[in-house]
């Protein structure tokens, strides 16, 4: 009574989705910081390291 296929499908979907979401969040933060940097270079340097 195996069903490893189902197990790996579930684990694969979950961890891939979470990884993709995390990467999307980081990219959104970078973009927002960069957009800020265009008008306020000093401000973006101040919190740039956090992203």
């Amino acid at each position: 009574m195996g069903h490893w296929g189902f197990v790996f499908l579930a684990y694969g979907i979950v961890w891939c989705s979470i990884l993709i979401y995390t990467m999307l969040l980081k990219r959104r933060i970078q973009r927002a910081t960069a957009a800020r940097g265009k008008t306020h270079p000093a401000a973006s340097e101040a919190d740039g390291h956090e992203a």
Binding site: T22, K26, A32, A35, R36, A43
Partner: peptide
């Protein structure tokens, strides 16, 4: 994830205020 998302919200808010 929550702290990351909150940080994003803060940066976006600051960007809006700058604009």
């Amino acid at each position: 994830l929550l702290s990351l998302r909150i940080h994003l919200g803060e940066v976006e808010e600051q960007a809006r205020r700058d604009r």
